[in-house]
Design a protein around this nucleic acid. Structure first.
Lengths: 224, 224
DNA sequence: AAACAACCTGACCAGATGGTCAACAAGCTC
DNA sequence: GAGCTTGTTGACCATCTGGTCAGGTTGTTT
């Protein structure tokens, strides 16, 4: 039984928690970045391992040597993106200031869309396809998170800190408005005529969204 | 006598004695509907003529007989969607009531997303892919339309009818918020736990968006 | 330098891809 | 029913698909 480089060997290595060689790390990073771009643009079916390999500057066989399979690569990217997402979902409490929380929410979501546009689009493509890989996450973890926030939003409304709007629609509004600048980047750039959005543009948009949404929900920034 | 899964639709048509042009019309309609669904879910690359044919209940050859090529079919669908889009872009003037115009804008866009969710997702997939077929439309026709509206919004702001927000971001906000319920339907359903959004749900969402956005922009409905 | 693991890749495979085509069936007009 | 248009479809083609594999090179450890 020859123990040549094989998926099994890789799995063993990873399970052993070996601080992967520098080569492996570099190549995997390259492959993940390339794959995120291709999957984001063409969806799971539309992406080809060949195209990913070319974008990563490697032969197809080499890509498969590292990632095992197209499906595994896709799942891994999805998980990475969900991890980024979860990272910014800090807890809030009824005693927090609604204005602060909502602004932080908008800002962090906007930053995520900006820092990882390909990841955002990857997520969008997955949802467009009917969320075949994420159904569980959506109706489980994420749903719980939304309900938790919704409860707090309702309490704020009861205390007169904001209008009694349906919190779930509010969360969707913030998600969609921020996600838009990653997912529909091509449209945004085409219409504005810009080659790309500058930091200043993004700051302006963030300020606009914060202003409109907070005011629209009757949330007034706390006085100093 | 073909014994293979003969499309029920065609047999029905034949039995009813529907003639010539009617057959073409019926089959094309069936094909376009099936193709819209498949392209919407998997994007241009990810969609296969085979899958479209199966969804339409026809042999692949027959589909190609009617539509010529995959590319042609895709372009045709895109054009049909742009036509629907253009149909609701009526002109507005500075003398119109901002509240009425914005509400009508939100409502009609929401209705479009609801009436043609597959078309909306098809559009989204095209933009995700970098808008290879729509670049011209975006930076031409659509851009002009946005600028025209923007001019009027600014005039309203000057007249004190609304806050001086950047009109382009406002338009994007409305687009994204409404588009969301078509494009991210799988997410919305997963999180809300519903099987589908009822008319009442949609009405509630529309009312929410209208309320928040109008208030957020300092637009007050005109007094009677 | 020997041994061994990690890394690399061209050749190959079965199946799917978009598209063509020849042959035939069904309808319509005269 | 002849003649023509339209509709229908299985067989076929070159190319691409995800994935395997044998056999090689490189790097590290002893």
């Amino acid at each position: 039984m020859t123990e040549v480089a094989s998926p099994a060997a890789i799995r063993r290595a990873r399970e052993r928690g070996e601080a992967g060689g520098a080569t492996r790390e570099r190549n995997e990073r390259e492959i993940l970045a390339a794959a995120e771009k291709i999957f984001a643009a063409h969806g799971y079916r539309g992406a080809s391992v060949q195209a990913i390999a070319e974008a990563a500057g490697l032969p197809k066989s080499n890509v498969l040597y590292y990632v095992g399979s197209k499906r595994g690569l896709y799942v891994r990217l999805l998980e990475r993106m969900m991890a980024r997402w979860n990272a910014l979902l800090d807890d809030i409490s009824v005693d927090d200031d609604p204005a602060e929380v909502l602004e932080a929410f908008i800002r962090s979501k906007m930053a995520l869309s900006r820092r990882h546009p390909e990841g955002s689009r990857l997520f969008a493509a997955e949802i467009l396809a009917g969320a075949p890989f994420l159904q569980e996450y959506l109706s489980g973890e994420l749903r719980g998170w939304v309900e938790e926030r919704a409860r707090i939003f309702r309490q704020w409304a009861e205390r007169g800190l904001m209008d009694p709007v349906e919190p779930v629609w509010l969360i969707f509004l913030i998600w969609s408005a921020t996600q838009h600048y990653a997912d529909f980047e091509a449209q945004v750039l085409g219409i504005t005529g810009k080659g790309e959005l500058s930091d200043a543009d993004v700051e302006q948009i963030t300020a606009f969204l914060t202003r409109v949404i907070l005011k629209g929900c009757g949330v007034t920034p706390r006085e100093a």
